[in-house]
Write a protein that binds this DNA or RNA. Structure first.
Length: 765
RNA sequence: GGACCUGUAGCUCAGUGGUAGAGCGUUCGACUCACAUUCGAAAGGUCAGAGGUUCGAUACCUCUCAGGUCCACCA
């Protein structure tokens, strides 16, 4: 054995041994309850970051259960990651001075597919580097045809049950990414903007968005506001930049009399509150802002200007005309921005597909209340879960990106000759108008390839999965151009990967045992898996939800590219070995709180791996010399003869005489009990601390040091005991540090030939 | 505007109703025959502040101060 443990020369070899031995693939045994974890599917095109390295928690659980003899499945996969991937891909395009508008839909889709295909293996190889014992024979990709088939089927069922519907509402739309989002994906940021107090007919009112004035269809006050009560219901004349116009004064509870002057302009097409008021008061909706983020023809001379520029210009022009009362330049408020690119989101009215969430959410909450699924490790995560489900809004599943499965709905153009199409075609040519108008200028392929969505109005006749209209039999049909929200696919991961409804894997492994992920996707993913899983299978998708926290740097700061403190897990593996990184991530991390990691910490754990190696080396040497004739008749070791050191067993256990042996045996038994309990309770850090302390400070510093003379003298009992204790230690440590433990285990004389990965978990003697 | 979390050794963090712990760092001493990725020893904390409950609080409660997070359609 080498003097120091060398991860580089060991890890790849050991992983290959495991993989070739087929140990990651469970044997289905119907008499045993399986242990199953689904890997939270990383984006197929993304390299790993430290967060992924935390999946070590899952590997610990999986390896522990495998050693306990449970049929254990840890299933890996990759996510096509709709908008995320398209965003990354578009950045690449931008480097070549191209954009999504330069390609038709089919071409763009194909290009992204090839891009993902090229990158798919990267994180797979990286996970192997970390030692994750994933069953690669079951690797699934979210766009595998059989997976997509289940997804589409779920949509059909939701539709048939009245839980999927189409509606035109204000959608938070990113004009840069060209897609709308669900409310969950909106990031709120505080910023200071000018608050314009403009003269508005007989009133002065405050707004941050004077450029939307062209879309105003009312003015609102609070019903109880005495200042304005005589105006309610009246029409007022307002002098504007495009001449004088008339709007109605309405009274609505949504208006805060204390804000500004207590009067608000109402722009139903571009403000969430105004949209609600518009519905209540039956107001017209005038679109001032288009999908490209520019003002529409309604804005007259301002048409074509981008929102921000238009705002400044409109404000200037209003001031020039004497219509600006004053400006509060220090108005602090929050705006919604695109979580991807940071662009301020525009609320725009677009018909979208929604999933009615309440009934599904109630079932999901109920399952946790009834403890069919348990959320660990903190009570507050459960509270977060309940709160979100309680206040849930319907889920917008339409995305105007090409990268994903298209929603299986067809609009009939014979029934709806006036279906409005609005899309940006090849070469950036924006196109809109009725279908017939558009058709004259474009081929059908170009139309259905439109990057933007078909703006079919509500009430349009549509068919599911049909090439002919069910109402009129017409064949001039066009498929919904929107694709599914990625999370709609991932919400079904436990079903789709296992082969719902009748694959052997599904019947055996569902519901899965544990779902371990970071709490930040509790709503995006976990809660929705609960909702859809229960809806389709009638059963929860997992028994335990275990939420871990984020990995932060040595100063407790969140890792981010802009701070430059991002740590690459693979670099750490190269430098100190996978075991060191894994142990560092687990060691000293309280359940549910941030996990800080530093180069120093990983190095410290590398030292621990090395310590373990050298204990093994020392024991090996002593066992070797005790059992082999050195050939030198004067060698004192020959006095003990050539006999193999016997195995430690029940008989020897009962006959133990040496107090040192007795003590270490008792200590290692306590350790085994403690570590087992800690793992069962998801107290991984506690287990790691116990293992570290025992291995280094009890076994090495005390027991080995104290008994060196006995080992040297070839004391069979001493050697049998120390080997037994070391074997146990290796077993207990294996889930945490799989590589070094496996490597050392196989080097100890007396090893029974069975790899540690499937060695039985220690039972107490 | 709601809800929540954190404040313990120089740093990052565990922890418990009853003399305060780890890793890293620091200081001193050792090339001891498994390991210098080591060994031996040591220094270092009114456990944020104030009040309360208790025989007793770092731990439970209240408030204050300081950080941080999540949720939310405030023109």
């Amino acid at each position: 054995m080498d003097k120091a443990y060398d991860p580089k020369s060991t890890e790849e070899r050991v992983y290959r041994l495991w993989e070739e031995g087929g140990y990651f693939t469970p044997k289905i045994d119907k008499t045993k309850k399986p242990f199953t974890i689904l890997l939270p599917l990383p984006n197929a095109n993304d390299p790993m970051h430290m967060g992924h390295a935390l999946f070590t928690v899952q590997d610990i659980l999986v390896r522990y259960h495998r050693m306990k003899g449970d049929p254990t499945l840890w299933l890996p996969g990759g996510d096509h990651a709709g908008i995320e991937t398209q965003y990354v891909f578009e950045k690449q395009l931008a480097k070549q001075d191209k954009s999504r508008f330069d390609f038709d839909r089919a071409t763009l889709y194909q290009m992204i597919a090839e891009f993902v295909e090229k990158n798919k293996t990267v994180n797979r190889d990286q996970m192997k580097r970390l030692g994750f014992s994933l069953d690669w024979t079951r690797y699934r990709y979210s766009l595998d045809p059989d997976i997509v088939a289940i997804i589409l089927d779920t949509f059909r069922k939701l539709h048939a049950d009245g839980l999927a519907y189409r509606d035109e509402r204000l959608v938070n739309f990113c004009t840069k990414c060209g897609t709308g989002f669900s409310d969950l994906e909106v990031k709120h940021v505080e910023q200071t903007d000018p608050l314009y107090y403009m003269k508005y007919g007989p009133f002065v009112l405050a707004t941050v968005r004077p450029e939307t004035k062209f879309g105003d269809t009312a003015v609102a006050v609070h019903p109880k506001d005495k200042r304005y009560k005589d105006w309610v219901g009246k029409e007022i004349e307002v002098e504007g930049l495009l001449g004088t116009f008339t709007v109605k004064v309405i009274a609505d509870e949504l208006i805060d009399p204390k804000f500004g002057t207590g009067v608000a302009k109402v722009t139903p097409a571009h403000d969430h509150k105004d949209f609600d008021m518009g519905k209540r008061h039956n107001l017209d909706m005038k679109r001032v802002i288009g999908f490209d983020g520019r003002l529409t023809a309604i804005a007259g001379p301002y048409a074509g200007m981008k929102v921000k520029a238009a705002r400044t210009k409109v404000a200037e022009d209003l001031a020039a005309k004497g219509l600006m009362d004053h400006i509060d330049t220090k108005y602090l408020h929050t705006v919604g921005v695109c979580y991807k690119c940071g662009t301020v989101l525009e609320p725009l009215p677009i018909p979208q597909w929604y999933v009615k969430a309440k009934p599904l959410a109630d079932a999901a909450a109920d399952a946790v209340k009834k403890k069919k699924t348990v959320i660990k490790p903190l009570k507050r995560f459960e509270k977060m879960y309940f709160d979100w489900l309680k206040n849930i809004l319907d889920w917008n599943i339409s995305r105007q990106v090409v990268w994903g499965p298209r929603i299986p709905i067809w609009y009939c153009l014979d029934c709806n000759p006036s279906v409005h199409l609005s899309f940006i075609a090849k070469n950036g040519a924006k196109t809109s108008g009725t279908y017939q108008e558009v058709k004259r200028a474009h081929t059908v392929e170009e139309i259905s390839s439109g990057i933007q969505t078909v703006m079919a109005p509500i009430g349009t006749t549509y068919a599911l999965d049909s090439s002919a209209c069910k109402a009129c039999g017409g064949t001039d049909v066009i498929q919904e151009t929107d694709t599914f929200d990625t999370w709609f696919l991932s919400s079904q991961w436990p079903m789709t990967t296992l082969g719902f409804p009748d694959h052997e894997d599904f019947t055996y492994f569902y519901p899965t045992s544990v779902l371990d992920t970071m709490w930040d996707i509790l709503f995006f993913w976990v809660a929705r898996m609960m909702m859809i899983g229960l809806y389709r299978t009638g059963n929860v998708p997992f028994e335990v939800i275990h939420l871990h926290s984020r990995v932060v740097d040595a100063k407790g700061q969140k890792m981010s590219k802009s701070k430059g403190n991002v740590m690459n897990p693979i670099e750490m593996v190269d430098k100190y070995g996978a075991d060191a990184l894994r142990f560092a991530l687990i060691f000293g991390a309280a359940p549910g709180s941030d996990i800080s990691i530093s180069d120093d910490k990983v190095r410290g754990m590398r030292n621990f791996a090395n310590k373990l190696w050298n204990i093994g080396r020392f024991i090996s040497m002593n066992l070797d010399s005790a059992s082999k004739d050195s050939g030198n008749p004067l060698d004192s070791r020959n006095q003990t003869g050539n006999e193999e050191v016997p195995y430690y067993d029940e008989t020897m256990h009962k006959k133990l005489t040496d107090p040192n042996d007795k003590r270490i045996i008792s200590e290692v038994n306590m350790l085994a009990a403690g570590v087992t309990k800690d793992i069962e309770r998801y107290r991984f850090s506690d287990a790691a601390q116990k293992l570290y302390d025992f291995t280094w400070h009890r076994l090495a510093d005390v027991h080995v040091e104290k008994n060196k003379e006995r080992f040297k003298a070839g004391d069979a009992q001493a050697l049998a005991v120390v080997r037994h204790v070391f074997f146990m230690t290796l077993k207990l440590l294996h889930p945490f540090m799989p590589f070094v433990t496996e490597a050392v285990y196989q080097k100890i004389p007396g090893w029974n030939g069975i790899p540690l990965i499937v060695a039985p978990w220690p039972s107490l003697l």
